[in-house]
Design a protein around this nucleic acid. Structure first.
Lengths: 149, 149
DNA sequence: CACTAATAGATAGCATGCTACTTATATACC
DNA sequence: GGTATATAAGTAGCATGCTATCTATTAGTG
């Protein structure tokens, strides 16, 4: 155990998260997508066509500029299209192409199957318990920030 | 709830981990260090002077090349020194400078204090339980990889 | 109506992770 | 002993996150 001196939760979060992304990326290599790129694709599938980039960025949990580059890549691959928004000419409405929707469904399914393998015998309520706990950590940080404003 | 359609554990891990790093980075801004750079510094403090880069990279959980750049930065800041290893001239032995050791101790303490705030009322055994669970996820991935070799 | 402030998206550039490769040295095997 | 393999560190370049800034447009206020 090289890390016996660091039983740190953050440390373990860093390692497990990196590992999980690499695990999925390796399995769906043939899709031409990575964790970073399939995520906006699938969120667009689930949110529905016609949303703008701001909404999608919020949903995916990344900044606007981060999403711009991922979308550039998806557009280049012919999976997503950016259309004008007549009612707000600053914005762009996003649409999956036919190929994009097909790939999104395939990858979504594949990721769900793989994630079941990762979760192993963990049941849904255990998963929810951890998610709740992680959210509590975020709440603690938010509260600390507010307190020391 | 923009993410009501994704109660995904991986998604939450990504968000919480990013948030935690940014939280710490913001608090210890004056140290001139970030999460990525204080981590090798503190591991070197705890492992002791004279270890080589391979050992440190393993301890920190990053690749050799990733560590090289972080060490370059720490050396430039005058916190760490790379010395020749007489017994193996491929390797370098790492040493904290006086300033490096001092800063490492300060930051180590500050991080521990901040992490206690993040953890809030979570006790050590609860923390250990989550860590064990994250390790189980990694085990599941390792086993899956072996199985499908 | 005009001027200011806010907002959507894009661009530029930094930080941090990686893999693939190079170089120097050490180890192992015939 | 000499050749082949393995190992430690470093370099190059990609991917993915960010903030700061720019541009275009919208909204809000006198």
């Amino acid at each position: 155990m090289t890390n016996s001196h660091e039983p740190d939760l953050l440390f373990r979060l860093l390692l497990t998260t990196r590992r999980w992304r690499q695990f999925l990326d390796q399995k769906i290599l043939s899709s031409g997508l990575t964790d970073a790129t399939w995520r906006p694709l699938i969120h667009l599938l689930l949110l529905g066509n016609g949303i703008n980039q701001k909404i999608l960025a919020e949903s995916v949990g990344i900044s606007g500029p981060s999403l711009v580059r991922l979308l550039d890549s998806l557009v280049t691959k012919g999976l997503v299209e950016r259309h004008e928004d007549e009612s707000d000419r600053r914005a762009r409405k996003l649409y999956l192409t036919t190929a994009g929707e097909q790939l999104a469904r395939q990858v979504h399914q594949a990721i769900q199957d793989l994630n079941r393998q990762v979760l192993g015998d963990m049941n849904a309520s255990e998963e929810q318990a951890i998610i709740a706990l992680l959210q509590k950590l975020e709440n603690n940080m938010n509260r600390y920030d507010e307190k020391t404003l």
